[in-house]
């Protein structure tokens, strides 16, 4: 079967909703461009972290001292699972006419994402209790800024999800709401990509050295 042309990143609505499919092209592209700018932001934070984690420890806590690998693993699983559940939500948006599947998968994504944020906040709390505060060293400043920036992005995504769930109820599955959900999907998957870099280059690298 001939593939439908992909007009934009993420799941394309294709012939399930031709109007929205065409409307989506510039809107999703614009958001895609914005995500690229956001990626540069994270890249700079990573580059700063790369140097400060090695050169900026200031005889304070080292990565091995403060990183809780099991916790990072669970957070990774939660976020990865939430990416998959969001994929299911995207499929529901595209193929299922009733709203129930969509709301179910979005709700599940929200819980997993909230679990991720909750665990991360707990990790930070434990670190501060041990004296590993950002004010202690350059390494810790860089760590907290990088990981918290990601966490704040995820939290913003959670707020966005709630607003969209309300809009699904109030406005229905209009083209505008569909396009917003599609953009949130891109956002959510991108955050998981950033997290792959965080658990690898921050947590695993930190403990492995």
């Amino acid at each position: 079967m001939k593939r439908e042309p992909l007009l934009h990143p993420g799941l394309n609505l294709g012939s399930t909703d031709e109007y929205a499919h065409n409307e989506a092209e510039p809107v999703i592209f614009g958001f895609w461009v914005f995500l690229m700018a956001d990626l540069v932001l994270f890249a700079i934070l990573f580059a700063t972290y790369a140097s400060m984690s090695v050169q900026g420890q200031a005889d304070g806590p080292t990565p091995t001292d403060v990183f809780d690998l099991p916790s990072a693993f669970i957070e990774t699983m939660l976020l990865l699972a939430s990416s998959i559940t969001f994929g299911m939500a995207s499929l529901a948006l595209k193929y299922k006419a009733d709203g129930l599947h969509l709301v179910f998968w979005l709700g599940l994504t929200f819980c997993l994402g909230a679990g991720f944020v909750g665990m991360e906040v707990r990790d930070f709390w434990v670190m501060t209790q041990e004296g590993a505060v950002p004010q202690r060293s350059g390494f810790l400043s860089a760590f907290f800024l990088l990981v918290a920036t990601h966490g704040i992005h995820v939290t913003a995504g959670l707020f966005w999800m709630i607003v969209l769930l309300v809009q699904l109820r109030v406005l229905g599955r209009t083209t505008a709401v569909k396009l917003r959900l599609m953009r949130l999907a891109l956002f959510w998957h991108m955050l998981d990509i950033v997290w792959v870099c965080i658990f690898t280059f921050v947590y695993l690298f930190g403990v492995a050295q």
């Binding site: 700018a37 932001l41 700079i44 900026g56 200031a58 304070g60 950002p134 202690r136 390494f139 400043s141």
Partner: peptide, 29 residues
């Protein structure tokens, strides 16, 4: 624009919250 946003944010964190991105001591660079 992103590197500028980060640089100013880091400077703000140093100034407002005592972080050590660019300080003379405690690992700032």
């Amino acid at each position: 624009m992103a590197p500028l946003t980060i640089a100013t944010l880091m400077l703000a964190l140093d100034r407002y919250a005592g972080f050590h991105f660019f300080t003379n001591d405690l690992g700032g660079n």
